[in-house]
Simulated scan of single mutants.
Amino acid sequence: MPETKASERKKSRPPLLDLADLYPACFDWKKPQPLKIGLFDDLVEVGHDPQQVRHTLSVYCSRVRYLKSLRPDTPRVDLQGQPAGSVTAEASEHAKARLEKRWNPPAKTTAPVPELPIDAPLTEDNIVPGRLELTVKFSEIPKPMPVKSGMKIGIQTESALVVATLPPKAWKKLEKAKADWPQWVASLTGKLGTRVGADGPDVVVLENPAIQVFEKKTN
């Protein structure tokens, strides 16, 4: 007998993480507490598989007990169970709406498709965790400023000055490219860190930078 699409999707889902056992101060399936906004990133940063984290949090946060815990001004907790923000009135109302929809599902009708607004504000349900990264390309080796963690360099782009501290191995890649190739291009990628602007020139700090250097072929 052929498998249905639903059963195929169920098989493709990653196994749930035992978050209650790993982080008992944060996760409790029987008495859940509101979770810190951005907890997905925290779990990924400590080494958990992103797909498993996403699937587990989706299951955990869609349960009735968790939705009921989202009362206005209730503290949210981080992995160690420490306060990390609180539930807003908007988030609480959204949780109530999800509960009411679950208990009173709308009847199937052939009602006309409603006219959509030109724009609308996002709620927590419209937002998923992510990570903003920046890539900068340059073809000239900058004069570095030696610091404790490596070589601090700056790349002036058309919109902002990008500042990054390269580990010694990454800096050696640039030096080798300059010595071996007449022309080259470096691609510097990293997490978008602090940004300074408004009262002065725009400066973007690139955190945890990784670099790749390629020979530029000439015709």
Results as ranks from 00 to 15, higher is better:
residue 31 K to N: 06
residue 92 S to R: 15
residue 47 G to A: 02
residue 64 V to K: 11
residue 194 T to N: 06
residue 26 C to V: 07
residue 127 I to H: 08
residue 5 K to V: 14
residue 215 E to L: 01
residue 70 L to V: 00
residue 130 G to P: 03
residue 204 V to N: 03
residue 21 D to V: 08
residue 55 H to Q: 13
residue 72 P to Q: 01
residue 189 T to D: 00
residue 161 L to V: 13
residue 96 K to N: 14
residue 73 D to L: 06
residue 6 A to N: 03
residue 179 A to V: 06
residue 18 D to V: 09
residue 160 A to Y: 02
residue 170 A to N: 12
residue 207 E to Y: 10
residue 30 K to A: 09
residue 210 A to W: 00
residue 17 L to G: 05
residue 87 V to M: 12
residue 159 S to P: 10
residue 159 S to H: 14
residue 125 D to M: 10
residue 121 P to G: 14
residue 9 R to P: 00
residue 180 D to C: 02
residue 179 A to P: 05
residue 19 L to T: 13
residue 140 E to P: 00
residue 23 Y to S: 09
residue 2 P to H: 14
residue 95 A to P: 06
residue 91 A to F: 13
residue 49 D to V: 10
residue 112 P to T: 09
residue 54 R to I: 14
residue 214 F to L: 02
residue 152 K to T: 10
residue 42 D to R: 08
residue 38 G to M: 12
residue 153 I to N: 08
residue 184 W to I: 07
residue 66 Y to V: 12
residue 18 D to Q: 13
residue 168 P to H: 15
residue 39 L to Y: 03
residue 148 K to R: 15
residue 16 L to I: 13
residue 31 K to P: 01
residue 80 Q to Y: 08
residue 1 M to G: 00
residue 32 P to C: 08
residue 205 V to P: 04
residue 154 G to H: 12
residue 48 H to P: 06
residue 69 S to D: 04
residue 144 P to Q: 05
residue 19 L to N: 13
residue 85 G to L: 11
residue 80 Q to T: 09
residue 74 T to C: 09
residue 12 S to F: 06
residue 53 V to R: 02
residue 173 K to Y: 04
residue 71 R to A: 11
residue 187 S to N: 04
residue 186 A to W: 02
residue 103 W to G: 10
residue 171 W to K: 05
residue 48 H to I: 11
residue 54 R to S: 15
residue 60 Y to S: 12
residue 93 E to Q: 08
residue 39 L to E: 03
residue 126 N to W: 15
residue 8 E to N: 01
residue 175 E to D: 06
residue 9 R to L: 00
residue 109 T to N: 07
residue 21 D to S: 12
residue 34 P to F: 14
residue 10 K to C: 11
residue 213 V to Q: 00
residue 59 V to M: 00
residue 71 R to V: 13
residue 28 D to V: 04
residue 63 R to G: 15
residue 4 T to K: 00
residue 74 T to I: 07
residue 109 T to P: 05
residue 145 M to R: 15
residue 184 W to T: 09
residue 138 F to C: 05
residue 211 I to S: 00
residue 207 E to H: 12
residue 179 A to G: 07
residue 22 L to G: 01
residue 66 Y to D: 13
residue 168 P to I: 13
residue 117 P to I: 07
residue 198 A to K: 04
residue 59 V to R: 02
residue 15 P to N: 02
residue 162 V to A: 07
residue 55 H to V: 10
residue 74 T to P: 09
residue 154 G to P: 10
residue 193 G to Q: 09
residue 8 E to I: 03
residue 53 V to M: 02
residue 90 E to I: 08
residue 169 K to E: 06
residue 81 G to C: 04
residue 210 A to H: 02
residue 24 P to Y: 13
residue 89 A to W: 10
residue 37 I to W: 09
residue 61 C to N: 13
residue 157 T to P: 05
residue 124 E to Y: 11
residue 186 A to E: 01
residue 169 K to L: 03
residue 146 P to R: 15
residue 156 Q to A: 14
residue 163 V to A: 12
